[in-house]
Design a protein around this nucleic acid. Structure first.
Lengths: 138, 138
DNA sequence: CTTGACTCCGTACCTATGTACGGAGATTAC
DNA sequence: GTAATCTCCGTACATAGGTACGGAGTCAAG
């Protein structure tokens, strides 16, 4: 089954707007699709997957440049090159996790403080942000 | 000690740019300071704290609107609102960490596969990306 | 075959968070 | 007192990631 899609159907299937598809194409995240006589773009179902992939990666904090890199992993390149790209991305992800973990810890502490002693006049969250306590945490 | 500051000294003390101070003022994050005959803004040391507060809150993932809210909440009776705001942010951060951890695991596995058997013709990373495995991995 | 929905294109606009510019006036240092 | 520095203001620009517009061509249902 061939199931070619117009831009509107593709957008709908992928859960984005038509303009977003055009935008991704301008950015090179989607390759220029077939164009029959009408000039209308003809997409294939794999493009739906590709857009969903983009959206998932995005929701995890990758920007469109990152994603372009990830998508290039799916290409005719040598194994060591893809290995290096993946490894590099892995390091970035690990750094990002570490940064988020320290933010998480700071937030946890603030929330806990607040639950423990919110009866005493001032709010510990505000307090902790006003003083320089987190300086080291972050 | 009164220690009134010009905008430049304030910015320096708080570790931001002069334009950033003016910007925060336009946004209402800093109240319009005194203006002697010269027309130059005269800040007080508390404003340094206020800017640091903004910057720290920002690093925890609050945006300037959130922060304006926090600054308005700095009173005795509003602790539970602040608590909820922080808790909410904490949940978002935890979700993001979990999602990144699963990406990290997927990338780790890909890298390891590649290192184990990259001498055999095809690249396992490319293989795994060409198929729709990412669907589940990500 | 008509009508309405869809698509084309380039370009302008949007939010968030600042940064930079430029010319005039104030202040400070020597 | 003069030169260097600082500050004033409004406005424009920067970046990422879209979103909207408008007029013209195309497709599909009835």
């Amino acid at each position: 089954m061939k199931a070619r899609l117009t831009i509107g159907r593709l957008a709908e299937a992928a859960g984005v707007g038509v303009e977003t598809v055009r935008f991704y194409q301008r950015c090179g995240l989607l390759t220029e699709p077939e164009r029959p006589a009408s000039g209308y773009r003809e997409y294939c179902p794999a493009d739906v997957q590709r857009i969903r992939f983009i959206k998932r990666a995005q929701s995890l904090g990758f920007n469109l440049d990152d994603i372009a890199g990830l998508l290039k992993l799916d290409g005719p390149q040598t194994c060591s090159l893809t290995h290096d790209l993946a490894l590099n991305k892995l390091n970035l992800v690990e750094d990002k996790i570490a940064a988020l973990a320290s933010i998480r810890d700071a937030l946890r502490q603030m929330v806990r403080q607040c639950e423990l002693k919110h009866q005493r006049g001032t709010c510990p969250i505000i307090e902790s942000l006003v003083r320089d306590k987190n300086e080291r945490l972050l």
